[in-house]
Every structure is written in C-alpha cells, then in structure tokens.
C-alpha cells in the first residue's frame, strides 16, 4: 500500500485523471485532485465549501458522476477546489469539496474541463489492496 496520490495519464487529444489510495474514498478524492491539476498547478485556498450527493448505477458511473458534479460546480460557481472529503455507501456518494473563486491572476487556469468521459474508465482494487479510480476528461 502507498499513501494516497494522483497522476495524469496520456490521451492523444485530452488528458487522463487517475487517483489511487488505500480506500475507494481516497481514490475518488485523489481523482478530484487530478481534475483540479488539469486546470491549475497553483495553490487553491479552501475558503468555502460545496456539498455533493449522488447515486449511480455502478462504481464506474459514480466516478464519472462525481467528476462531472465537480465540473458543473466549477463552471456554475466559477470555483476551483483543493480539498475533498468523500463518503461512500455502496453506489451512493456524499462529499464535501472546499475551494475558492477562480482568479486568472492567482491560478493562471490553463483550460476548462468540458466533461468526464467513459474512456479508460476504471474503478478497481489492485493486487496490493490499493484502489484505483480513473478516466479521461475532455478539455
């Protein structure tokens, strides 16, 4: 097992987000960090909080719905998020996301994310017990 972490993975025209952690919850949280990093590498402050509640047909759709809920809140609230707390009960997700209004001066945002896709979509437990949650996002 390793500590929770995230990374981006290769896609020809867009970008893949991957979260990994000792629990499914941490993998989902890390995938959300990877999503923010598509947009900015600058620090984001946890100045306000958004609550998200979702139910999906399976865990893979739950990941896509989770990332799309964040994309929707980023777009409609003009926010970026930096801290996430995910609670899972089967295919029900309850989460808190902390962040602040996006600022061109502070965050130098590179690109907005249009949506999470079903490409390279995987939510699975690895042999070492860690959980992995990933998909490609369209930018």
């Amino acid at each position: 097992m390793v500590s929770p972490h995230w990374e981006h993975f290769h896609h020809e025209s867009d970008i893949g987000v991957r979260g990994q952690g000792p629990t499914l919850e941490t993998a989902f949280e890390q995938a959300a960090h990877a999503l923010t990093a598509v947009i900015t590498e600058e620090p984001v402050s946890p100045r306000s909080i958004v609550e998200i509640s979702l139910e999906s047909p399976d865990l893979e759709f739950l990941l896509v719905d989770w990332l799309n809920a964040l994309i929707f809140d980023m777009a409609t609230r003009s926010m970026l998020f930096c801290r996430f707390e995910v609670e899972l009960d089967g295919t029900h997700l309850k989460a808190k996301a902390w962040g602040e209004p996006v600022s061109v001066e502070k965050h130098h945002p590179a690109v907005e994310v249009k949506g999470a896709t079903l490409s390279e979509l995987k939510v699975q437990q690895l042999q070492d017990g860690d959980w992995l949650a990933q998909c490609v996002v369209d930018v």
Binding site: F61, D65, I71, F72, G115, A116, L118
Partner: peptide, 17 residues
C-alpha cells in the same frame, strides 16, 4: 460552451445505460 458540454455529459450517460 457549457450548455453543449452538459448536454453531451448527460446524454452520454443515459445512452450508455
């Protein structure tokens, strides 16, 4: 813009399901 992205997101899911 956002409208098209959201339509795409929602229908991709309902069509897949």
């Amino acid at each position: 813009r956002g409208l098209g992205h959201q339509i795409g997101t929602e229908f991709l899911k309902s069509m897949a399901l």
